[in-house]
Design a protein around this nucleic acid. Sequence first.
DNA 1: CTTTTCTCCTGTATGC
DNA 2: TGCATACAGGAGAAAA
Length: 297
Amino acid sequence: MPELPEVEVVRRGLVEHVVGRTITSVRLTGARVARRHEGGPVDLADRLAGGRVLTADRRGKYLWLVVAPPGGQDPHALVVHLGMSGQLLVQHDWTPEPKHVHARLDFADDGPQLRFVDQRTFGGLAFTPLLSDRYADSSHPYGVPQPVQHIGADPLEPAFDQAGVIRSQKARHTSIKRALLDQSLVSGIGNIYADEALWRAGVHGLRACSALTKPALGRVLDHAAQVMREALEQGGTSFDALYVNINGASGYFDRSLDAYGQTGRPCARCGAPIRREEFMNRSSHSCPRCQPRPRLP
DNA sequence: CTTTTCTCCTGTATGC
DNA sequence: TGCATACAGGAGAAAA
């Protein structure tokens, strides 16, 4: 599932293969891929045609291409969310299309297309204005797209204010895992890296935010940032030139997971079998010895 | 306003 | 073999 490191790998691929090119036409399959675009699929395709891609940017799990429309209008953002199963593929038009291609962008040069492929269609595209970032020291010179404004900075960007996040978490009446997954507090963390960060910190995800000390919350966030940096290094090694890849679990990093998906395997620290528990109709993985469960609320 | 639950979707794995 | 069911889960709407 694409979380921050996987999306960053895709962004780097777009910088390499798409930035600087001019879009000639866009073909969309079905309306669902554009359901978050205000004007619908036809408007989305129309407004992208003739645009030049200035850069590829990202915050958390949101990815966007900054596109300068023809005629000198203000740059807008083609916002891409990969959802659970979305992929962006850079492929020549003669390459047979995989299943579930929902969008194809053609360019003015002879280079390959950009294809958006999404089996479960939780992802989608939207073309939106760029607005000024809420963070003063933004590293997003074109601003951030409207659909991205409500999420917090991610742990790998300069605007990330860890002390501020800790203060917000302290005030929340919820568990630490819910807080980690809440993109409005800190973005980019999904189920995989939440479980990994909590395992590294030795904290059970059901612990109340308010019951953890600020240093303990800081350690969880530090581990989240660190595990995503490590995953990015691994994931960065796995994509080849014409394939902007999402490998489901970040390149080769799935070999390095200590908690997520490790049910029954021995904990790398203490040897106790990793347990799986129900959580928000999903699953959580943790070590029963290193991450003792809090008393029931 | 805050917090929780529900819904969207389909390929893969498992059980009877 | 065939069919039913569980599972994977990000995000936003809806409900509490």
